[in-house]
């Protein structure tokens, strides 16, 4: 059996948000949507302040409230633990977003083409040699494929207006035996991914060697993401440096 999980070592995380960027590049998510998000917290009053960071992917809960409430089974839990959204099945009711205690769901409020990052004028001919005509906006062709035993369009699809999306554990990479983009990119190796049913996998070893805790344990969601070091965010912390982009 395969059961995927992720370890997030907060003692290693330096809050650089490289994973967030990697996720954006890999999954072409629209402006303001962060399938992977890194909280930057501040606690205390100057000069006795402390900063902490908390990467927050979808927790791929084994007892996922989002799966339970989906009226049409578009949000589902795979046997290997990955929780996905079928872009062709979702009716856009956004109930999963309300049910999730972690705030990881992103609905596409508009045509994603209209909400890609537009720092560069993609129409500019002089860009052609670099882009090879792939923009605007560049689309990872893998996202539109059918994945898994179920053969469903679950990798975020082409990002459709009016459907729900969230972190997929980069299902399109995992199916090819690769790590999710955020894991691949993290410069301090704070993120470890793999099959916990295989005792020799790096994630199994990591989890064996460290003490772990889970985010919002009290919600009973049984996440597949395990945190190491740091501490669960308290109510005393203030979030700083929120992304400016909304929708």
């Amino acid at each position: 059996m395969t059961k995927y999980a992720m370890a997030v070592d907060l003692d290693r995380c330096q809050g650089c948000r490289g994973c967030m960027t990697a996720c954006k590049v890999e999954n072409n998510t629209v402006e303001g949507n962060f399938w992977m998000y890194v909280f930057r917290f501040e606690q205390g009053t100057y000069p006795d302040t402390e900063m902490s960071f908390l990467p927050r992917p979808c927790q791929h809960c084994d007892n996922a409230p989002c799966v339970k409430v989906c009226p049409v089974g578009a949000r589902f839990h795979r046997d290997d633990g990955i929780v996905l959204t079928d872009a062709d099945r979702c009716i856009g009711c956004r109930y999963c977003e309300l049910a999730c205690p972690y705030g990881v769901n992103y609905f596409n409020w508009q045509k994603p083409e209209n909400a890609q990052y537009t720092i560069v004028d993609w129409q500019d001919d002089s860009l052609d040699p670099v882009t090879g005509g792939l923009v605007p906006p560049y689309k990872n062709p893998d996202l539109d494929q059918l994945w898994g035993e179920e053969q469903r369009r679950t990798a975020g699809g082409g990002h459709d207006k009016g459907v729900m999306e969230k972190c997929t554990f980069c299902v399109h990479r995992v199916e090819k035996g690769l790590d999710p983009a955020c894991v691949e990119t993290c410069p301090t190796d704070a993120l470890v991914f793999g099959n916990v049913d295989d005792p020799d996998s790096p994630v199994s070893q990591y989890l064996r060697e460290h003490q772990t805790w889970q985010l919002l344990d009290e919600a009973g969601t049984r996440p597949s993401v395990f945190y190491i070091g740091g501490s669960p965010p308290s109510r005393e912390v203030t979030e700083i440096e929120r992304p400016k982009a909304t929708v």
Partner: peptide, 20 residues
């Protein structure tokens, strides 16, 4: 035609909105 972007709704969490 425009998408629900023309409503006051946005995603909860990082977007600081309401989804319903």
């Amino acid at each position: 035609s425009q998408g629900m972007i023309v409503t006051g709704m946005a995603n909860t969490g990082t977007q600081g909105g309401v989804t319903w």
